[in-house]
Amino acid sequence: MRCEDLAARLPSLAEGPGSLEPDELHHVERCLRCQADIARYRRLRRAMVAMGAERLAVPPDLAAQVIAGLDEAGPGRPRHRSTGRRAAYLGGLAAATAAGVGGVLVLANRRRPA
């Protein structure tokens, strides 16, 4: 067995000893390169687990903004953030269509022979 054969299995060993086959275990016990790689994955995993205890600095108004969003949504089905934009878009489209139809009717009336 070569290190390259085992490389794909090493990331999953970050979470613990895992289940290496006897020939894989035999290789790792004698291979400093694979042992170093496993140690790197485990250090990385430990650093990530420790990050679980960290909290990022949040924008000061975030909680108030979230609660205001819930208020806006009301007790029933909350309004999606983009609903307002969609309504404005559809309203604009309807107004443009109405204006176009109106224009066509005006032109048609003007051209009608007396």
Binding site: R55, L56, V58, L62, A63, I67, L70
Partner: peptide, 21 residues
């Protein structure tokens, strides 16, 4: 709603941290 707002205040820092990550 008051109880849910309290849940928001208790959890929003964690939620923001995950969302940002």
């Amino acid at each position: 709603r008051g109880a849910f707002d309290a849940l928001v205040r208790a959890t929003y820092v964690d939620t923001y941290t995950l969302a940002h990550r």
